[in-house]
Amino acid sequence: MKTVSRIYTVLMLIFLYAPVAVMVFFSLNSGGSVWVFSGFSLKWYEGLMEDTTMLTALTHTIIIAVLSAVISTVIGTAASVGILSLRKKFTKKVITSVTNIPLMNADIVTGVSLMLLFIFIGRLFSLDESLGFVTVLIAHITFNLPYVILSVMPKLVQTDHNLLDAAMDLGCTKTASFFKVILPSVSTGIFTGFIMAFTLSLDDFVISYFTCGHYQTLPIVIYNMTKKTVSPDVYALSTVIFVIIFVLLILYNVVQNKQDKRRTAI
């Protein structure tokens, strides 16, 4: 059994990492093909630094990811508090269902429906350009919100409400006790929600594709590049992003392991 499971796991990892290996390998190609390898070179990486389209798109992606993650975390956390304090079961159910729509729906439908809304509004005010920075940002906040709510809500449910009463008995005002007691106790949920929102926004292609107009994010630029014949520069760019994320994840895990050890030590 043990050998079977080992072989299976290894085969699985080969399957999962074959495209990654291909990407890294051909990003080092000295030729311009992603099929024929003609020798090692770093020229595609050097080329990246001068590619203004790509660098602009990267800036756009980061701006959108940061803004949409911050805004959706604030709105979403507040929403979780509010939804939980709803008394009517029916209202709660309706709101939960609406929250689930972007989560359940196909990305393409979310993207298309938002695009139609923006175009509709654009026509209403006869704007020249109905899609752009604002619309991508709105779209990203919209699909991030359910993820934030989904990570904050369960933590809020777990919070002991006696803590809030205790804080108020000890003289805290309602608002102060919320910020000093409730918020810290759900901070891990808020953090998870923020990180999820940030990464989803970084990676989104389909919804941005329909809502971005001329405001190109990185996945859009990559899409346009893969429409034509691809040169290894796309692979080089993806390798750079992949390595950055890989390092961040390793660091995150090391920190978490350390925290776990400290916790068990106490």
Binding site: A18, P19, V20, V22, M23, T199, D203, F205, L218, P219, I222, Y223, T226, V230, V234, Y235, S238, I241, F242, I245, F246, L249
Partner: peptide
Amino acid sequence: WMNFLIRTYSW
């Protein structure tokens, strides 16, 4: 964490 488009394209 690799972009979905690249993941597909590598194939």
